[in-house]
């Protein structure tokens, strides 16, 4: 379990981890305790939840599949076929 008192750096790291649902129970316990006495980490936690919402709303905008541009494909194709001819 390690030490019970966290530094702000450690506390906010656990807070970040918990934004992905991956903080352990004992980590969350220590974080909650730290936040009782630390107003900056408390503020960080509240803002962090808000940021997670923002990240989520932007990720839904960038879901579509990306294709290679025709120019890029042509360029690769040209080089590739040169190599292919050399090899055959």
């Amino acid at each position: 379990m390690g030490k019970f008192k966290l530094t702000c750096d450690e506390a906010t790291m656990i807070c970040d981890k918990s934004q992905y649902g991956e903080a352990t129970f004992s980590e969350k316990l220590k974080l909650n305790f730290h936040v009782l006495f630390c107003k900056f980490c408390k503020r960080y936690s509240a803002q962090n939840a808000k940021l997670t919402d923002i990240f989520k709303s932007t990720c839904s905008l960038s879901e579509n599949k990306q294709k290679m541009s025709m120019d890029d494909k042509d360029e690769i194709s040209k080089k590739f076929h040169e190599l292919l001819e050399k090899n055959s």
């Binding site: 702000c8 750096d9 900056f40």
Partner: peptide
Amino acid sequence: SFYDDGENEGRWIEERVPQMWENE
């Protein structure tokens, strides 16, 4: 955002503490 050594290790660096977001 945090001191990474010395006696303040792990504490917020004063000018980098989270500010209030007024227009949130």
